[in-house]
């Protein structure tokens, strides 16, 4: 309940800040990759006790982006900083306004070791109308959880998934020798 209220307060604050959002800089590709990797490591280290952090911590919300956590196997949104209504709900049948089953695409893209990017339509924080969003997603390992995914995205009209996959691959590469 308290988490829900906090998340609601965050959402309201972002909605009220919407007129200023036009001037606010947008999240960059590098920031998104870095935050997703940070979130994956955070959950690997903290385990299930870390899930609620994504519902109420400012650490996972920046500029016009945020990190959300979900499970493909369990078909469930585990944590979402701006949409408490989605937390605990099924995700795989969700469609964007163009009819894309976005979470099915996110689940497929996150299967590989380096994760991947997915394009879909989703409103910017504080807006009602959907914009083109490209999100980077990765899976992470959490004790007693068969499948946990983290993702964050940018709102952008020009970049392609292929370009972004190449950037993510370069960012993830140096970590490959980690156990």
């Amino acid at each position: 309940m308290r988490n829900g209220l906090r998340a609601l307060a965050t959402a309201v604050a972002l909605t009220l800040a919407a007129p200023a959002a036009a001037e606010e800089p947008s999240a960059t590709v590098d920031e998104v990759i870095a935050k997703v990797l940070e979130a994956a490591k955070f959950l690997h280290d903290k385990g299930q006790a870390g899930f609620s952090d994504f519902n109420n911590s400012a650490r996972w919300v920046w500029k016009d982006s945020y990190v959300f956590v979900f499970s493909c196997r369990d078909d469930r949104m585990i944590a979402h900083p701006l949409r408490p209504d989605l937390v605990g709900r099924p995700i795989l049948q969700m469609e964007d306004e163009k009819g894309t089953m976005l979470f099915q695409d996110l689940c497929a893209a996150g299967e590989g070791a380096g994760g991947g990017w997915v394009e879909y339509w989703w409103p910017r924080p504080g807006e009602a109308k959907a914009s083109r969003k490209i999100s980077y997603t990765q899976s992470t390992q959490v004790s007693f959880q068969p499948d946990v995914r983290v993702a964050a995205g940018i709102y952008d009209d020009s970049m392609t998934v292929e370009q972004l996959d190449a950037r993510a691959e370069r960012a993830v590469m140096p970590q490959k020798d980690a156990p």
Binding site: H44, D45, K46, G47, Q141, V142, S143, P179
Partner: peptide, 9 residues
């Protein structure tokens, strides 16, 4: 005394 997934392993 936090324990990561690897530590629990």
């Amino acid at each position: 005394f936090q324990a990561s997934t690897t530590d629990v392993g």
